[in-house]
Design a protein around this nucleic acid. Sequence first.
DNA 1: AATGTGCATTTTGCATACAAAAATGGGTTG
DNA 2: CAACCCATTTTTGTATGCAAAATGCACATT
Lengths: 240, 240
Amino acid sequence: MTIPAHTTPSPIASNVTSLAEHRLLHEEVIDHLRDLIVTGELLPEAKLNERVLAERLGTSRTPLREAIKFLASEGLVELVPNRGAVVAPLKPEKMREVFVVLGALEALAGEQACRNASEADIADIRALHYHMLAHHARGELAQYFRYNQLIHQSILDCAGNATLVQTWRGLNAHVKRARYMANLSRERWDKAVKEHEDMLDALTRRDGTKLQALLRDHLANKLALVMEALGSGAVAEGAR
Amino acid sequence: MTIPAHTTPSPIASNVTSLAEHRLLHEEVIDHLRDLIVTGELLPEAKLNERVLAERLGTSRTPLREAIKFLASEGLVELVPNRGAVVAPLKPEKMREVFVVLGALEALAGEQACRNASEADIADIRALHYHMLAHHARGELAQYFRYNQLIHQSILDCAGNATLVQTWRGLNAHVKRARYMANLSRERWDKAVKEHEDMLDALTRRDGTKLQALLRDHLANKLALVMEALGSGAVAEGAR
DNA sequence: AATGTGCATTTTGCATACAAAAATGGGTTG
DNA sequence: CAACCCATTTTTGTATGCAAAATGCACATT
């Protein structure tokens, strides 16, 4: 029933920190609502009843509606005129699209990262990598995901392109959402880890072309994984 | 004082048509406000006074605030806690970032378009191309831009990836905004047209690799153009 | 039984009201 | 003359009110 911490306190790369003081309500609501959607607590196609949701989030309808508009622009919710909003459906076709675009973005990021990353940046990523390996070895899926995400995000950060990061983040939310629904076979999991090894290797050697290709493949494999899950009707098994 | 029609009635590629009936107020406001920002009628860093803007757009503050949140997610406005929103500044660094990402997206689109486009699609793009040439010959800049945008959008559409289109659209708004501020030398203009010739050629031959490279170069040149304009202090000369 | 039809309820969309925070400005003091 | 302080005004952030649209449901009709 508790909500996983997904606000990514990101050990490295804290670019958009700032607001220390008491955050604004509608901003809180944006993050809270996004979290509910990404973690699958609000299932795809679920209707967002304003009165009910506002009460659940402890606000009035106004900040909630503003948050919904924000998330609509991110693509996580869909606005239906005069009928409010629904959680964006999780269609296989949409997933395919998102992964294709993410592939291009991560490939770009990988290339740039090989150019721009400092040795310290790479060391940080290596550290994250070993954390991830540890969690993989212990079969701790949630923590594995966490570090996996942090690694990808760090590579993005190293590209030195905040716009790229922001764009990626928006699309990645969809992936995270699918992740929560897909079960990971040990076989696929091992494969993914192996791919990460290769990626770290390419980054260390600053072989941008190689890293680009690896990231594309990695994303393609993730897609295949998600498609399996979606195809097998495991779509609606997200929460609770 | 009148506002240029920027809602792109798009001769070809009308994918997201639907709502025939009376659109919702906050949606109107989103488009109207985006237009004001993209055309430079609202200059970068301009403060968005809710009371004034609401009056100007003929609504109350509620739909306006919802629109602002939506556009904030697109990156066209920035939210400052307890101090409202401002039109996103138009920094050279941001432009560089946007063009790099757009380059990757358009390259991806070009590659996919060479695979997926029907002959009819290509014929349509060719038609747009000739329209553009005509306007170029007559020195009609605004109409040239219009068809230029339509061509790029059509290539995107041909990629058959709605998410790609949506992502591109959001970033492209920033470019459009810069466009309205940059003056185009005849020399650069001719060069851009020549590049479009090559692009059409590659698309016709379905040479995805070539088109990809051309699009990347084309975007890089556009960036150089915008940077000139921004660098020469012509930033604040948008409107009025 | 299936399909309309009209009324009651719910829900959305927009406007307004109110409270808290920030800007403004004028006067005082060092 | 500049810097600071405090009261006033303005502006933002949130909650609430109200009208229009949608939904649900009982009942009538074929």
